[in-house]
Design a protein around this nucleic acid. Structure first.
Lengths: 151, 151
DNA sequence: TGATTAAATCATGTAGATATGATAAATCAA
DNA sequence: TTGATTTATCATATCTACATGATTTAATCA
Protein backbone atom coordinates (compact mmCIF):
# COMPACT_ATOMS: atom_id res chain seq x y z
CA UNK A 1 0.00 0.00 0.00
CA UNK A 2 2.59 2.50 1.15
CA UNK A 3 6.16 1.84 0.16
CA UNK A 4 8.55 0.34 2.67
CA UNK A 5 10.21 3.64 3.49
CA UNK A 6 6.94 5.42 4.23
CA UNK A 7 5.86 2.50 6.40
CA UNK A 8 9.08 2.72 8.37
CA UNK A 9 8.55 6.45 8.82
CA UNK A 10 5.04 5.91 10.11
CA UNK A 11 6.10 3.22 12.54
CA UNK A 12 9.02 5.27 13.81
CA UNK A 13 6.92 8.37 14.36
CA UNK A 14 4.19 6.37 16.08
CA UNK A 15 6.80 4.85 18.38
CA UNK A 16 8.26 8.28 19.15
CA UNK A 17 4.80 9.56 20.01
CA UNK A 18 4.47 6.75 22.50
CA UNK A 19 7.74 7.65 24.23
CA UNK A 20 6.45 10.96 25.53
CA UNK A 21 6.82 14.35 23.95
CA UNK A 22 10.07 15.59 25.51
CA UNK A 23 12.35 12.61 25.52
CA UNK A 24 14.92 12.21 22.74
CA UNK A 25 15.10 8.65 21.49
CA UNK A 26 18.18 7.36 19.70
CA UNK A 27 17.96 6.09 16.15
CA UNK A 28 19.68 2.88 17.23
CA UNK A 29 17.04 2.28 19.88
CA UNK A 30 14.21 2.81 17.41
CA UNK A 31 16.02 0.53 15.01
CA UNK A 32 16.17 -2.40 17.37
CA UNK A 33 12.75 -1.66 18.81
CA UNK A 34 11.07 -1.70 15.43
CA UNK A 35 13.35 -4.05 13.53
CA UNK A 36 14.28 -1.48 10.93
CA UNK A 37 17.83 -1.43 9.47
CA UNK A 38 19.76 1.15 11.51
CA UNK A 39 21.48 3.14 8.79
CA UNK A 40 18.41 3.14 6.65
CA UNK A 41 16.22 4.35 9.49
CA UNK A 42 18.80 6.98 10.26
CA UNK A 43 18.35 8.54 6.84
CA UNK A 44 14.58 8.41 7.16
CA UNK A 45 14.63 10.13 10.53
CA UNK A 46 16.98 12.75 9.16
CA UNK A 47 14.60 13.42 6.32
CA UNK A 48 11.67 13.68 8.71
CA UNK A 49 13.65 16.22 10.69
CA UNK A 50 14.25 18.16 7.50
CA UNK A 51 10.52 18.08 6.82
CA UNK A 52 9.83 19.59 10.24
CA UNK A 53 8.16 16.48 11.58
CA UNK A 54 10.96 15.61 13.99
CA UNK A 55 13.64 17.43 15.96
CA UNK A 56 17.08 15.93 16.17
CA UNK A 57 19.91 16.44 18.63
CA UNK A 58 23.42 15.14 18.23
CA UNK A 59 25.88 13.85 20.74
CA UNK A 60 25.29 12.20 24.11
CA UNK A 61 21.66 12.23 25.18
CA UNK A 62 20.79 13.11 21.64
CA UNK A 63 18.30 11.44 19.36
CA UNK A 64 14.97 12.28 17.83
CA UNK A 65 11.61 13.49 19.08
CA UNK A 66 8.42 14.91 17.61
CA UNK A 67 8.72 18.55 16.61
CA UNK A 68 5.09 19.19 17.55
CA UNK A 69 2.33 17.45 19.55
CA UNK A 70 1.19 14.17 18.03
CA UNK A 71 -2.36 15.49 17.99
CA UNK A 72 -1.37 18.08 15.40
CA UNK A 73 0.56 15.68 13.20
CA UNK A 74 -1.36 14.20 10.26
CA UNK A 75 -0.17 10.91 8.81
CA UNK A 76 0.11 12.63 5.45
CA UNK A 77 2.95 14.80 6.72
CA UNK A 78 4.88 11.74 7.83
CA UNK A 79 4.32 9.86 4.62
CA UNK A 80 4.57 12.46 1.89
CA UNK A 81 8.36 12.84 1.90
CA UNK A 82 8.61 9.20 0.89
CA UNK A 83 5.48 8.26 -1.03
CA UNK A 84 3.48 10.15 -3.61
CA UNK A 85 0.25 8.50 -2.53
CA UNK A 86 -1.08 11.70 -1.01
CA UNK A 87 -0.50 13.94 -4.03
CA UNK A 88 -3.98 14.23 -5.46
CA UNK A 89 -6.09 11.24 -6.23
CA UNK A 90 -4.72 8.98 -8.86
CA UNK A 91 -6.22 7.05 -11.72
CA UNK A 92 -6.59 3.32 -11.06
CA UNK A 93 -5.97 2.66 -14.71
CA UNK A 94 -2.85 4.80 -14.65
CA UNK A 95 -4.19 7.39 -17.03
CA UNK A 96 -2.19 10.61 -17.03
CA UNK A 97 -5.24 12.82 -17.04
CA UNK A 98 -8.27 11.60 -15.21
CA UNK A 99 -10.71 13.89 -13.50
CA UNK A 100 -14.45 14.33 -13.19
CA UNK A 101 -14.31 16.08 -16.56
CA UNK A 102 -12.03 13.65 -18.34
CA UNK A 103 -12.83 10.40 -16.64
CA UNK A 104 -11.34 7.00 -17.21
CA UNK A 105 -13.64 3.99 -17.35
CA UNK A 106 -13.28 3.26 -13.65
CA UNK A 107 -13.54 6.83 -12.46
CA UNK A 108 -16.98 6.91 -10.85
CA UNK A 109 -16.47 3.65 -9.05
CA UNK A 110 -12.98 4.40 -7.85
CA UNK A 111 -13.44 8.01 -6.77
CA UNK A 112 -15.03 7.43 -3.34
CA UNK A 113 -12.31 4.96 -2.41
CA UNK A 114 -9.58 7.28 -3.58
CA UNK A 115 -11.10 10.13 -1.60
CA UNK A 116 -11.41 7.99 1.50
CA UNK A 117 -7.74 7.05 1.31
CA UNK A 118 -6.71 10.63 0.94
CA UNK A 119 -8.92 11.74 3.81
CA UNK A 120 -7.53 8.97 5.98
CA UNK A 121 -4.02 10.29 5.51
CA UNK A 122 -4.99 13.93 5.82
CA UNK A 123 -7.30 13.70 8.82
CA UNK A 124 -5.86 10.95 10.95
CA UNK A 125 -3.27 12.17 13.41
CA UNK A 126 -0.45 10.24 14.99
CA UNK A 127 -2.12 10.85 18.35
CA UNK A 128 -5.23 9.09 17.14
CA UNK A 129 -3.16 6.06 16.26
CA UNK A 130 -1.74 6.15 19.77
CA UNK A 131 -5.21 6.30 21.22
CA UNK A 132 -6.59 3.57 18.99
CA UNK A 133 -3.76 1.23 19.77
CA UNK A 134 -5.48 -1.71 21.43
CA UNK A 135 -4.45 -2.33 25.04
CA UNK A 136 -3.36 -5.91 25.60
CA UNK A 137 -6.03 -7.75 27.50
CA UNK A 138 -5.19 -10.47 29.97
CA UNK A 139 -8.40 -12.34 29.18
CA UNK A 140 -8.69 -13.36 25.59
CA UNK A 141 -12.18 -12.77 24.24
CA UNK A 142 -13.81 -15.65 22.50
CA UNK A 143 -16.35 -13.54 20.61
CA UNK A 144 -15.47 -13.57 16.99
CA UNK A 145 -16.50 -10.26 15.45
CA UNK A 146 -15.01 -10.81 12.03
CA UNK A 147 -12.19 -12.80 10.58
CA UNK A 148 -11.24 -10.16 8.10
CA UNK A 149 -7.78 -8.73 8.47
CA UNK A 150 -7.17 -5.21 7.36
CA UNK A 151 -5.57 -2.59 9.54
CA UNK B 1 -1.95 2.29 -6.74
CA UNK B 2 -1.62 -0.83 -8.83
CA UNK B 3 1.80 -1.58 -10.23
CA UNK B 4 2.56 -0.79 -13.83
CA UNK B 5 2.14 -4.36 -15.00
CA UNK B 6 -1.30 -4.78 -13.46
CA UNK B 7 -2.35 -1.46 -14.98
CA UNK B 8 -1.23 -2.62 -18.40
CA UNK B 9 -3.18 -5.84 -17.93
CA UNK B 10 -6.31 -3.93 -16.99
CA UNK B 11 -6.03 -1.58 -19.94
CA UNK B 12 -5.37 -4.40 -22.37
CA UNK B 13 -8.29 -6.46 -21.15
CA UNK B 14 -10.59 -3.45 -21.23
CA UNK B 15 -9.52 -2.76 -24.79
CA UNK B 16 -10.11 -6.38 -25.78
CA UNK B 17 -13.57 -6.22 -24.27
CA UNK B 18 -14.28 -3.23 -26.47
CA UNK B 19 -13.26 -5.08 -29.62
CA UNK B 20 -16.10 -7.54 -29.48
CA UNK B 21 -16.11 -10.99 -27.95
CA UNK B 22 -15.08 -13.14 -30.91
CA UNK B 23 -12.37 -11.22 -32.65
CA UNK B 24 -8.74 -12.07 -31.97
CA UNK B 25 -6.60 -8.98 -31.55
CA UNK B 26 -2.87 -9.09 -32.07
CA UNK B 27 -0.49 -8.19 -29.28
CA UNK B 28 1.26 -5.74 -31.60
CA UNK B 29 -2.01 -3.96 -32.30
CA UNK B 30 -2.83 -3.67 -28.60
CA UNK B 31 0.69 -2.47 -28.03
CA UNK B 32 0.45 0.45 -30.45
CA UNK B 33 -3.16 1.15 -29.51
CA UNK B 34 -2.39 1.45 -25.82
CA UNK B 35 1.21 2.64 -25.95
CA UNK B 36 2.52 -0.35 -24.02
CA UNK B 37 5.95 -1.83 -24.90
CA UNK B 38 5.28 -4.70 -27.30
CA UNK B 39 7.43 -7.45 -25.85
CA UNK B 40 6.45 -6.55 -22.35
CA UNK B 41 2.76 -6.61 -23.20
CA UNK B 42 3.28 -9.91 -24.94
CA UNK B 43 4.42 -11.52 -21.73
CA UNK B 44 1.53 -10.01 -19.82
CA UNK B 45 -1.03 -11.30 -22.32
CA UNK B 46 0.59 -14.70 -22.22
CA UNK B 47 0.28 -14.74 -18.46
CA UNK B 48 -3.36 -13.69 -18.64
CA UNK B 49 -3.96 -16.56 -21.03
CA UNK B 50 -2.30 -18.89 -18.54
CA UNK B 51 -4.60 -17.53 -15.84
CA UNK B 52 -7.63 -18.34 -17.98
CA UNK B 53 -8.56 -14.72 -18.51
CA UNK B 54 -7.64 -14.68 -22.20
CA UNK B 55 -7.48 -17.12 -25.06
CA UNK B 56 -4.58 -16.97 -27.47
CA UNK B 57 -4.20 -18.21 -31.01
CA UNK B 58 -0.97 -18.36 -32.97
CA UNK B 59 -0.23 -17.83 -36.60
CA UNK B 60 -2.06 -15.74 -39.16
CA UNK B 61 -5.33 -14.26 -37.86
CA UNK B 62 -4.16 -15.14 -34.38
CA UNK B 63 -4.01 -12.92 -31.35
CA UNK B 64 -5.82 -12.67 -28.05
CA UNK B 65 -9.43 -12.42 -26.95
CA UNK B 66 -11.38 -12.74 -23.72
CA UNK B 67 -11.87 -16.32 -22.59
CA UNK B 68 -15.28 -15.49 -21.14
CA UNK B 69 -17.83 -12.67 -21.37
CA UNK B 70 -16.63 -9.37 -19.95
CA UNK B 71 -19.65 -9.31 -17.67
CA UNK B 72 -18.32 -12.34 -15.80
CA UNK B 73 -14.77 -11.06 -15.49
CA UNK B 74 -13.92 -9.29 -12.23
CA UNK B 75 -11.05 -6.82 -12.20
CA UNK B 76 -9.48 -8.88 -9.46
CA UNK B 77 -8.91 -11.79 -11.82
CA UNK B 78 -7.09 -9.52 -14.25
CA UNK B 79 -4.96 -7.91 -11.62
CA UNK B 80 -4.05 -10.69 -9.23
CA UNK B 81 -1.44 -12.41 -11.39
CA UNK B 82 0.62 -9.22 -11.23
CA UNK B 83 -0.21 -7.42 -8.00
CA UNK B 84 -0.75 -8.74 -4.51
CA UNK B 85 -3.19 -5.96 -3.70
CA UNK B 86 -6.13 -8.33 -3.72
CA UNK B 87 -4.70 -10.98 -1.40
CA UNK B 88 -6.53 -10.26 1.79
CA UNK B 89 -6.54 -6.82 3.27
CA UNK B 90 -3.15 -5.55 4.23
CA UNK B 91 -1.82 -3.59 7.15
CA UNK B 92 -1.16 0.08 6.39
CA UNK B 93 1.68 -0.01 8.84
CA UNK B 94 3.15 -3.06 7.16
CA UNK B 95 2.68 -5.34 10.14
CA UNK B 96 2.97 -9.02 9.29
CA UNK B 97 0.05 -10.01 11.42
CA UNK B 98 -2.79 -7.57 11.64
CA UNK B 99 -6.38 -8.62 12.04
CA UNK B 100 -9.42 -7.70 14.10
CA UNK B 101 -7.91 -9.79 16.89
CA UNK B 102 -4.35 -8.55 16.64
CA UNK B 103 -4.82 -5.04 15.40
CA UNK B 104 -2.23 -2.46 14.55
CA UNK B 105 -2.78 1.11 15.67
CA UNK B 106 -4.44 2.12 12.42
CA UNK B 107 -6.59 -0.95 12.06
CA UNK B 108 -10.05 0.39 12.87
CA UNK B 109 -9.62 3.47 10.74
CA UNK B 110 -8.06 1.70 7.79
CA UNK B 111 -10.32 -1.33 7.64
CA UNK B 112 -13.30 0.21 5.82
CA UNK B 113 -11.03 1.64 3.15
CA UNK B 114 -9.21 -1.62 2.72
CA UNK B 115 -12.50 -3.47 2.42
CA UNK B 116 -13.82 -0.98 -0.11
CA UNK B 117 -10.74 -1.43 -2.26
CA UNK B 118 -11.04 -5.16 -2.15
CA UNK B 119 -14.75 -5.06 -2.96
CA UNK B 120 -14.07 -2.73 -5.85
CA UNK B 121 -11.71 -5.25 -7.40
CA UNK B 122 -13.87 -8.24 -6.62
CA UNK B 123 -17.23 -6.85 -7.67
CA UNK B 124 -16.45 -4.59 -10.59
CA UNK B 125 -16.46 -6.39 -13.91
CA UNK B 126 -14.65 -5.45 -17.08
CA UNK B 127 -18.06 -5.04 -18.72
CA UNK B 128 -18.97 -2.41 -16.15
CA UNK B 129 -15.89 -0.44 -17.08
CA UNK B 130 -16.97 -0.67 -20.69
CA UNK B 131 -20.40 0.58 -19.80
CA UNK B 132 -19.14 3.36 -17.54
CA UNK B 133 -16.72 4.62 -20.11
CA UNK B 134 -17.92 8.16 -20.74
CA UNK B 135 -19.14 8.79 -24.26
CA UNK B 136 -17.54 11.83 -25.84
CA UNK B 137 -20.07 14.63 -25.95
CA UNK B 138 -20.06 17.14 -28.79
CA UNK B 139 -21.30 19.90 -26.49
CA UNK B 140 -18.93 20.59 -23.65
CA UNK B 141 -20.78 21.18 -20.39
CA UNK B 142 -19.84 24.29 -18.47
CA UNK B 143 -21.26 23.06 -15.17
CA UNK B 144 -18.43 22.34 -12.82
CA UNK B 145 -19.39 19.47 -10.55
CA UNK B 146 -16.07 19.08 -8.77
CA UNK B 147 -12.47 19.77 -9.56
CA UNK B 148 -11.22 16.68 -7.81
CA UNK B 149 -9.45 14.14 -9.93
CA UNK B 150 -9.63 10.55 -8.91
CA UNK B 151 -10.70 7.77 -11.26
C1' DT C 1 5.65 -28.33 -48.72
C1' DG C 2 7.28 -23.96 -47.86
C1' DA C 3 6.55 -19.12 -46.89
C1' DT C 4 4.37 -16.13 -43.82
C1' DT C 5 2.37 -14.75 -39.64
C1' DA C 6 2.07 -14.22 -34.81
C1' DA C 7 2.59 -16.03 -30.18
C1' DA C 8 6.13 -18.19 -26.96
C1' DT C 9 10.44 -18.12 -25.04
C1' DC C 10 15.09 -16.76 -23.89
C1' DA C 11 18.76 -13.62 -22.89
C1' DT C 12 20.06 -9.18 -21.51
C1' DG C 13 19.80 -4.29 -19.88
C1' DT C 14 18.37 -0.25 -16.78
C1' DA C 15 16.64 2.46 -12.91
C1' DG C 16 15.00 2.95 -8.54
C1' DA C 17 13.88 1.09 -3.96
C1' DT C 18 16.04 -0.97 -0.39
C1' DA C 19 19.58 -1.64 2.04
C1' DT C 20 24.91 -1.88 4.12
C1' DG C 21 29.40 -0.03 5.76
C1' DA C 22 32.49 3.48 6.81
C1' DT C 23 33.66 8.16 7.88
C1' DA C 24 32.76 13.08 9.28
C1' DA C 25 30.79 16.47 12.28
C1' DA C 26 28.58 18.04 16.38
C1' DT C 27 27.65 17.77 21.35
C1' DC C 28 28.47 16.71 26.02
C1' DA C 29 30.89 15.52 30.24
C1' DA C 30 34.86 14.76 32.78
C1' DT D 1 40.77 19.76 25.83
C1' DT D 2 40.01 15.19 25.19
C1' DG D 3 37.25 11.11 24.66
C1' DA D 4 32.75 9.20 24.25
C1' DT D 5 28.42 9.47 22.13
C1' DT D 6 25.29 10.18 18.59
C1' DT D 7 23.58 12.27 14.29
C1' DA D 8 24.99 13.55 9.39
C1' DT D 9 26.87 12.22 5.22
C1' DC D 10 29.08 9.58 1.66
C1' DA D 11 30.11 5.52 -1.03
C1' DT D 12 28.70 1.20 -2.40
C1' DA D 13 25.91 -3.11 -2.85
C1' DT D 14 21.65 -5.83 -3.87
C1' DC D 15 17.25 -6.84 -5.53
C1' DT D 16 13.18 -6.18 -8.14
C1' DA D 17 10.08 -3.89 -11.44
C1' DC D 18 10.23 -2.54 -15.82
C1' DA D 19 11.73 -2.99 -20.24
C1' DT D 20 14.39 -4.34 -24.79
C1' DG D 21 16.04 -7.47 -28.54
C1' DA D 22 16.54 -11.70 -30.73
C1' DT D 23 15.25 -16.34 -31.49
C1' DT D 24 12.08 -20.36 -31.45
C1' DT D 25 7.66 -22.64 -31.99
C1' DA D 26 3.22 -23.20 -33.85
C1' DA D 27 -0.53 -22.17 -37.01
C1' DT D 28 -2.32 -20.79 -41.51
C1' DC D 29 -2.54 -20.67 -46.34
C1' DA D 30 -0.98 -20.45 -51.14
Amino acid sequence: MLNQTAEYALRAVTELAGQGPDEFVQASELSSLLGIPANYLSKILHQLAGAGVLESRRGPRGGFRLAAPAATLALLRVVEPFDSIGEGRRCVLGGAVCSDRTACAAHERWKPISNAMHDFLRETTVAQLQHDKPARRSTRRKTRVSARASG
